[in-house]
Computed example of a mutant assay.
Amino acid sequence: MIGDPHHIRVLAARLRADGERVRAVAVRVAGTSEVAWQSPAAQSFRARVHDVAVGLRRVATDLDDAALALDWHATALESVAAALARAAAAGESAVRAGAHELSAVLR
């Protein structure tokens, strides 16, 4: 596992904000399909606008999913770091206890 949890969470927040901006663009794009004119070209325009808005919403969801994955990764990094710190502390305690016992035997 690689990375600094804080920086990973900052990146996740940026991705979430980007997702919100893309979602807002999707709403504006979808609103452009409200045209009064009727013709085959208008129908084609509405269909294309719909497809683009759907695609943008999909991108926004992908950005949200990526942000969530980064948050999970940051949490996992913190968990591993905590486990390593506990193991190091336990190892230090064991070494100190062993050294104490050895010095008692050697006296």
Rank of each mutant, 00 (worst) to 15 (best):
A97R: 01
A83F: 01
T61R: 12
A94M: 05
L63I: 07
A82E: 10
E92D: 06
A89E: 03
S103H: 12
T61A: 12
L70T: 00
L102M: 08
T75E: 15
L84M: 11
A104Q: 14
H73W: 07
D71Y: 04
D71M: 06
E78T: 13
A97C: 05
L84Y: 05
A94Y: 06
T75N: 14
E78R: 05
A88T: 05
T61S: 15
G98W: 01
A89V: 03
A74Y: 02
A83G: 01
L84G: 06
T61Q: 13
L102Q: 14
D64L: 11
E78S: 14
V80A: 10
D71V: 11
A83R: 02
A66T: 07
A69H: 12
E78F: 03
L68E: 10
D65K: 14
A66F: 09
D64K: 09
A97K: 00
G98R: 04
T75L: 12
S103T: 05
L77M: 04
L102Y: 10
G98E: 03
A66R: 08
T75D: 11
E101I: 12
L77Y: 04
A69K: 14
A99G: 03
A97P: 00
A83K: 03
L77V: 09
A76K: 05
A85I: 06
L68I: 15
T61W: 11
G91Y: 01
A69P: 04
R96C: 00
H100E: 08
D62W: 12
V95Y: 00
L68N: 15
T75K: 14
L102G: 09
D62L: 15
H100L: 05
V80C: 07
L102R: 15
A85D: 02
V80K: 05
A85Y: 06
S93W: 03
G91A: 07
A90F: 00
A66H: 08
A88Q: 03
D64P: 09
V80T: 14
S103W: 06
L77G: 03
R86N: 11
T61L: 10
D64V: 10
V95H: 01
A83V: 02
A81S: 12
S93V: 10
A94E: 08
L84K: 02
A90Y: 00
R86Y: 06
V80Y: 05
L84I: 09
A82H: 11
L77H: 07
R86G: 08
A104F: 11
L68D: 15
S93N: 09
A82F: 09
T75S: 13
